[in-house]
Design a protein around this nucleic acid. Sequence first.
RNA 1: GUGGCCGUAGCUCAGCUCGGUUAGAGCGCCAGGUUGUGGCCCUGGAGGUCGGGGGUUCAAGUCCCCUCGGUCACCCCA
Length: 427
Amino acid sequence: MSEPTSPRIEPFKAPTGTRDVLHPESDRWQALIALFAGHVTRAGYGLVQSPMFEEIGVFSRVGEGTDLVRKEMYDFLDKGERHIALRPEGTASIARAWIQHAQGEAKPWKVWYAAPSFRYERPQAGRFRQHHQLGAEAIGSDDPDLDVEVIAMLHDFYVSVGLKQVTLLINSMGTAEDRRRYIEDVRAWLNQRLDTLDPKDAEKVVDHPMRVLDSKRPVTIAAIADAPRITDRLSPEAAERFERVKSGLTALAIDFSVEPRLVRGLDYYTHTTFEFVSGALDAAQSTIGGGGRYDGLIESLGGPSTPGIGFGSGIERVLLTCDAEGVFPAPARSTDVFVVDTTGGTAARDFTIELRRAGISAERAFDGRSMKSQMKSADKSGAAFVCIIGDDEAAAGTVTIRDLRGDTGQDAVDRSTAAAVLAARLS
RNA sequence: GUGGCCGUAGCUCAGCUCGGUUAGAGCGCCAGGUUGUGGCCCUGGAGGUCGGGGGUUCAAGUCCCCUCGGUCACCCCA
C-alpha cells in the first residue's frame, strides 16, 4: 500500500471577467477617482454609496426589451428566495434610493458614485463581468441647462485627465410620446425594406427597430441612409429643449456632433442622450462614458413622476484610453526614509514607527537581511534618505542619515532629534 | 450565447513542425563577490502538476479527444 497522496489543489483564479487591480495600477485608480470627485464636488454633487445588489425588479424596469435585462443580468436567488441581481448600471439604484429616502430633499438632488457594475457577458477588450463606473445623477429638475451642466462636468473631467481624442455625440429622443411614435415610424419604414437589410439586422426590426439604425453592417448602413431621423420628428417643446442644450454646449466651447442614430442601451432615456467616444481605442468598445435624461424612470420604479439626468463612465475604459493616448500615468510612489538596522531589527521596528508618527513616510526591510540587502531595498523603495542603525549608532544613541539622491554624503545625528532633522531636510 | 487564436518558472517567451538523455533563456526574486553602505558589473541559488483530464505509444511539453482558462471578434455596452 502506498501512502495516500494529499490532494492537489488547483490554485484558484479570479472569476471570469473580473480582475485584481493591484498597485501601482490601483494608485492610478485612486488618482482618477479623486480627480473625478473634485469635479463633481465643485458642482455640488454628494457621494452616494448604494448596495451592489437589489431586487431584480429595480433593474428590469430599465427596459424589459434590452439585452442588459434579457441576457446580461447577473442574478440569483438568495437564501430567503429573493430574486436578487448584481447592479448592472448605476442609475436605477440611485433612482430607487431617491424614491426611498430623498423625495423631500432640495431639487435637483445631485449625487455621484464610484462603484462596480456587473454584467454577465463574455469578456473582451474593454469589457468585463465586473467593471467600475464613475457616475453622477441629478434628480428633480427638467431644466435643459442641467443637461448642459452634467455633460460639461464629464467633458471637463476628461479634459483634466489629459484625454484629447474624445468625441461627444448627442441626440434627443424627445418626449416619451415622441419616442414611441418614432419607433413605430421606423419599424414601419424598415418593414417595407426588410430584403435590403443584412439578415442579422432584419431580425431586429420587430423588437428593436432603433438598433437597426445603429448597425455597423455595410449592407444595412447603405439601406438605411434615408431612414427617418428622430431629430426631424421631435415635438416643438422637445426640439426647443434640444436647441437650448446645444446652444449651452456651444457657449461653453464644448465640441459635439449631433448623431440622430445614437441609440443607447437602456429604454428609460428621453430627450437628451449623449456618449463620449474615444478615437484612440481600436477595440470594439470605444464608448468611455454616456448617459442621458430619464424622465420616466422614477415613475416606473413606483415613485412620483420626476425628471432626472445622469451619466456613467467606465474606469477601465477611461484608463485604457489613457494608455492609448499616453496620458495619466500612475503617480509615483514615494518613500521619504528607509530605515536600515543591522542590530537585530528592534531599532528599525521602533524608529520606523517614530518617524511615521512624525508624519514622515518610512519603510524598512524585514527578516534580518544583510546591510547590503537592506541598502538595495532602500534604493528600490525610492526613498530620499536612508537611516542606518548599526552597532556603533546603537551604542552612541545616534542614527546615520545618508542622502540617497544627492552627493551630500552621510552624517550621524542624535536619535532623539533625527525625526526633526529629517522633516527639515525633506521639506 | 457563437466563432478565431493562445495556455511551458512570479513576468515575457523559446522548445511542439519530423514524440526520445536531468525542460531552457531574459527579466524579477534570494544570496555571495565588498565580515557597516544602494544604483553598475560578476558569480551562484531558489522557483516548473509544461492549464486540467483522458487516449495513442516502449516513450508525450511535443500527436489525438474532451474540458477549463485567457484573448480577440460577433452581439451588446461602460
